[in-house]
């Protein structure tokens, strides 16, 4: 006996549905990616008034090569959440500069109202440590961060 219909009635075995069993795998893959790339803020922000600048631009450097130096209105300097004497700043910057292979960027986050003599003193300390790349953090940066949260 020949096959009736010459095989035309054979049913296709390919499913017409998107396989949903691998959906969890895709989700977990994405989940693991975001878990690995997430960086939680290490430092708490100090309460400062940010200066404004229209020419504000992005620091083109990896986060690990950026060091934050906070200067409060009183002139008190903070590095890594700890108050630091002005004379000790260079001893903290120098190892970071050496470790970063001369790529370290100093983000100087100073209060807009702080007298300039403190800023000058910090700059001298940075210079003494050998670091040369300084970025004066300005308000546009802060607005961008706010939008992203």
């Amino acid at each position: 006996m020949a096959i009736s219909g010459g095989g035309f009635q054979r049913k296709s075995k390919a499913s017409d549905q998107i396989p949903s069993s691998s959906l969890a795998d895709i989700a977990f893959l994405l989940l693991i990616f975001f878990m690995v790339t997430t960086v939680f803020r290490k430092e708490t922000e100090r309460n400062i008034e940010w200066p404004d600048a229209a020419a504000t631009q992005q620091i083109d450097e990896k986060r690990q090569n950026i060091m934050y130096i906070w200067v409060e209105q009183s002139g008190q300097v903070f590095i890594n959440d700890r108050p630091v004497d002005m004379t000790d700043v260079s001893s903290l910057v120098a190892p970071a500069w050496a470790e970063s292979n001369r790529r370290l960027r100093i983000s100087l986050r100073a209060d807009a109202r702080v007298p300039y003599r403190f800023i000058d003193a910090v700059q001298q300390e940075i210079k003494d440590a050998g670091a040369i790349y300084v970025v004066f953090a300005t308000d546009l940066e802060r607005q961008m961060q706010r939008v992203r949260r």
């Binding site: 975001f34 790339t37 997430t38 960086v39 803020r41 600048a53 020419a55 504000t56 631009q57 992005q58 620091i59 986060r63 950026i66 960027r105 983000s107 100087l108 700059q123 940075i126 210079k127 003494d128 050998g130 670091a131 040369i132 790349y133 300084v134 970025v135 004066f136 953090a137 300005t138 546009l140 940066e141 961008m144 961060q145 992203r148 949260r149």
Partner: peptide, 16 residues
């Protein structure tokens, strides 16, 4: 997730 975006006015200090 907050991807770090740092902004400011860059300047290069002279060598000591």
């Amino acid at each position: 997730t907050v991807f770090p975006k740092d902004r400011g006015l860059p300047i290069v200090l002279p060598d000591a």
